[in-house]
């Protein structure tokens, strides 16, 4: 897999650390309650197909990216900076 980093260009998957579903961008407030925190930390849609996830360009520019990827074909459709992505 090669991930197109908006800053560095297309790079080998090995340069990136995988965080998981992009749900991590949507952190609930401290008093949002048990269900909201359960959904945020643990529950996952875990789709077989297109998904948005967080990858960190550890071996490159150090940016957090939202990568759109297919979990069945491993095809990568695009990547954007997490700070600019819609949650």
């Amino acid at each position: 897999m090669r991930i197109p980093c908006p800053i560095c260009g297309e790079r080998d998957r090995r340069e990136f650390y995988y965080k998981g579903a992009a749900v991590a961008l949507d952190r609930p407030g401290p008093d949002a309650g048990e269900a909201a925190w359960d959904a945020y930390v643990y529950l996952r849609e875990n789709p077989a197909g297109r998904t948005r996830e967080l990858w960190y360009h550890e071996g490159g520019c150090g940016a957090w990216l939202v990568v759109t990827r297919d979990t069945v074909s491993h095809e990568i459709f695009g990547a954007e900076l997490a700070g600019e992505a819609d949650v």
């Binding site: 897999m1 080998d12 998957r13 090995r14 995988y18 998981g20 579903a21 875990n46 077989a48 998904t51 996830e53 979990t71 069945v72 074909s73 491993h74």
Partner: peptide
């Protein structure tokens, strides 16, 4: 080390 439903892996 990334979510996958492909019953094969990657080279790394």
């Amino acid at each position: 080390m990334y979510a996958s439903y492909a019953a094969r892996g990657n080279l790394p």
